[in-house]
Design a protein around this nucleic acid. Structure first.
Length: 335
DNA sequence: CGAGCGAGCCGCCACG
DNA sequence: CACGTGGCGGCTCGCT
């Protein structure tokens, strides 16, 4: 029986607040190969709801998900004006208040915290929100302990997250709580893979199968290359090691793995870096040197170009740090 | 941030 | 003639 995840939106909501967590749960389903979650987008009125960026989502009515049905109820954030308007929406606030009692978890992304507060869910609780609104949240709701530094916070069944992308992190923590860290980690990896894949047409043509299927042919070479990441891995060197001409090496790599020598090596280097960022606290200068980057700046630039975030941010989001006994343990953005 | 430059990429063709 | 291979050269990309 899949857990029902209800995500409430309203006019002018932040698209990624809803789409990010929704994608996390969908990816978890795909990876687990069964329906762990049933994700629904809801609004006061059924139909198209415009986001702050203009893109519309097709929402079902809140009534289609009455109290008692949702395992987890989430509410997105939006611009100050949009949230202010949403706070006045009795139906939405009442829906949140009702689910606060019946759902196993209730949470907000970004400025959605104001809606949870309006529904009385944050009374006496610790909570976080987007840094721009943290001060106001604390003023409007003095009985809420606002922690502006947290990426996301869990207090009992109340989950709050800070910025847009931290909704993803929070959703991953929910997956971890429900189905273990492994699935959450796989899901995170999966999403990062999507993120770092550039917008070329190749991503539409089942690249994953091609990668795994043709992988054997270059697996030995990859293993060899991984032992000498800091050394010369030019096309010429690789071709020589593979016993092919540079031109032909390029051709076969392209045919089998749908990549180019340069990119392939970059992938090897970056996956080493990623693992090191997840597992260790090693400094970037050391990592850069051991993975064949000319220096930390080179590493940072390359990493950011391919992954869409800096090594530091990546470490903060995916690092397995010492004190994470519970997946619910909040992690601080600072430090 | 921008210019200069070298490595990489890949269409094309020649060869076996 | 089909097919795999290797090399040339112009263009692009990303590092410095």
């Amino acid at each position: 029986m899949p857990k029902l995840i209800a995500i409430a939106i309203f006019d002018g909501f932040q698209l990624l607040d809803a789409a990010g967590p929704a994608q996390v749960f969908a990816s978890a389903n795909a990876l687990a190969k069964r329906d762990l979650y049933d994700v629904r987008i809801l609004a006061a009125k059924a139909g198209l709801v415009g986001s702050a960026g203009g893109i519309e989502l097709n929402a079902a009515a809140l009534e289609s998900c009455p109290p008692g049905t949702a395992h987890t109820a989430l509410v997105a954030g939006g611009s100050a004006e949009a949230v202010t308007a949403a706070v006045r929406d009795k139906k939405l606030v009442a829906w949140l208040a009702a689910h606060r009692r019946t759902a196993r978890r209730i949470g907000s992304i970004c400025s959605g915290a104001f809606l949870l507060a309006a529904a009385g869910a944050l009374k006496g609780k610790r909570a976080t929100t987007h840094w721009e609104g943290a001060k106001r949240l604390a003023e409007y709701f003095p009985d809420t302990r606002v922690d502006a530094d947290a990426i996301y916070l869990v207090d009992g069944k109340i989950w709050t997250s800070a910025g847009v992308t931290t909704g993803i992190d929070m959703a991953l923590a929910m997956v971890a709580a429900d189905h273990g860290r492994d699935l959450a980690a796989q899901t995170a990896k999966q999403l990062v893979v999507y993120m770092h894949r550039p917008g070329h047409q190749s991503q539409f043509s089942a690249p994953l199968e091609i990668q795994t299927q043709g992988g054997d042919r270059f697996a030995a070479l990859a293993a060899w290359a991984e032992t000498r990441l800091r050394k010369d891995l030019s096309v010429e060197a690789l071709a020589k090691a593979a016993g092919m001409s540079p031109r032909n090496f390029h051709r076969h790599l392209k045919a089998d793995l749908n990549t180019t020598p340069r990119k392939w090596v970059e992938d090897l280097r970056l996956s080493y870096i990623r693992a090191a960022l997840e597992e260790t606290q090693t400094g970037l200068d050391v990592l850069a040197a051991s993975a064949g980057f000319s220096g930390p700046d080179h590493l940072i630039k390359t990493f950011a170009r391919r992954m869409g975030l800096t090594p530091g941010s990546y470490r903060r989001l995916h690092g397995h740090r010492k004190s994470t006994p519970e997946p619910l343990e909040p992690r601080n953005a600072a430090q």
